[in-house]
Design a protein around this nucleic acid. Structure first.
Lengths: 195, 195
DNA sequence: TTGCCTAGTGAACGAGCGTTCACTATACTG
DNA sequence: CAGTATAGTGAACGCTCGTTCACTAGGCAA
């Protein structure tokens, strides 16, 4: 991660687009676009950036991602070295948006209220990433309408005579055996909590 | 969210840059760039996209974000309507990357191992977003090196004669009163879990 | 010293950019 | 029916784009 790359990424993150060669000349303190042209050429060769079908720069994965350093408890020594020394070149990088969302058109966020899924470590105030779906598999955490009321629970397929039912992750809540209707609206794909 | 906007956002997400007017003409099935020019003009007026200091299109918040529909348990009726009807125009939108990360240069991701923070609903396999820091405040969840070992715990300031100490969120783990050293490496800012 | 590589300058190129203008066809208004 | 918006076409504009070429200065090897 050299100085050129750093400034380029900073530009991209603040402007939400790639700079032109003229802008890069200013950014990198070159007086000629040709100097920029050759530095960019090396970056492309190194896979730091990519080029469009007609010359324009396109960001690679590096630009929106955050380094994953390792386990918090096991194998930490070398990982935590990274925290101190900025030695992030070899670590994995992820973007939360890409990590959490598979099908954008079907994905929504809901804020959690209540404690019925607390034993699954989904607490009040957490955000859940849900994906619209009509069907779920046993064990999925689903957003469902059961007998006219909406709720988030574990989906249980069969095992009870009356067909699919719902189970809370909290022993204070009884299982829900739908009387009239059970309609799946979405499946929970992830949980996010911020402090 | 009309058809023009949808196609534009799709283009941006797959190409990671804004299209040119010529590309938009193809995308929107116009034969003239002028038709594009006027549609874009209305979009800019409506705040859907923005323009650069020299004409080029720049994405707004809409482009990388996901709609937040509402609470899972309370006030759900209207919110869940959104899930079904795509009526997402009025809902809040967030980008996880922007939501979770304040200072990119100081932020890293760690994978959680062990169950010492389980009562804080941070389980094995979760990812924690941490921000490098030397100091923490009472109650923060920190990544720290205590007497040569790395751990994730609640940071407790004073209250014990020997100075700051660490507390697990699991009654099976005893509090940690550092004998020689307690060094804060990072503060936990968020948790992410994927199913 | 000579020769060669590297890094940078500065001018020039065609192509594609966003934008403007003149014009056409359709639809709504009185 | 004429009159006026509205939406689209197609050609043209100046400007900036990425790229190329010719040239200069410094460093290193033979």
């Amino acid at each position: 991660m050299n100085a050129y790359t750093e400034k380029l990424i900073t530009f991209y993150r603040s402007h939400k687009r790639m700079p032109t060669y003229a802008e890069l000349a200013t950014l990198w303190s070159f007086k000629s676009k040709n100097a920029v042209f050759r530095v960019v050429g090396k970056m492309v060769a190194a896979g730091i950036v990519a080029k469009d079908h007609l010359g324009r720069l396109v960001p690679t994965s590096t630009f929106q991602e955050t380094p994953v350093l390792g386990l918090v408890k096991a194998g930490l020594p070398s990982a935590i070295d990274g925290v101190e020394t900025y030695g992030i070149d070899e670590s994995e990088m992820i973007s939360f948006d890409e990590f959490l969302i598979k099908d954008r058109a079907k994905t929504y966020i809901l804020e959690v209220d209540g404690d019925s899924m607390i034993d699954a470590h989904i607490a009040k105030g957490d955000l859940v990433i849900v994906e619209r779906a009509e069907k779920a598999r046993d064990g999925d955490i689903v957003i469902a309408e059961v007998d006219g009321e909406w709720t988030m629970k574990y989906f249980r397929e069969q095992k009870h005579d009356t067909g699919p039912w719902l189970e809370a992750a909290n022993k204070n809540y009884a299982p829900i055996y739908p009387e009239h209707s059970l309609r799946i609206a979405a499946i929970v794909r992830g949980v996010v909590r911020k402090y």
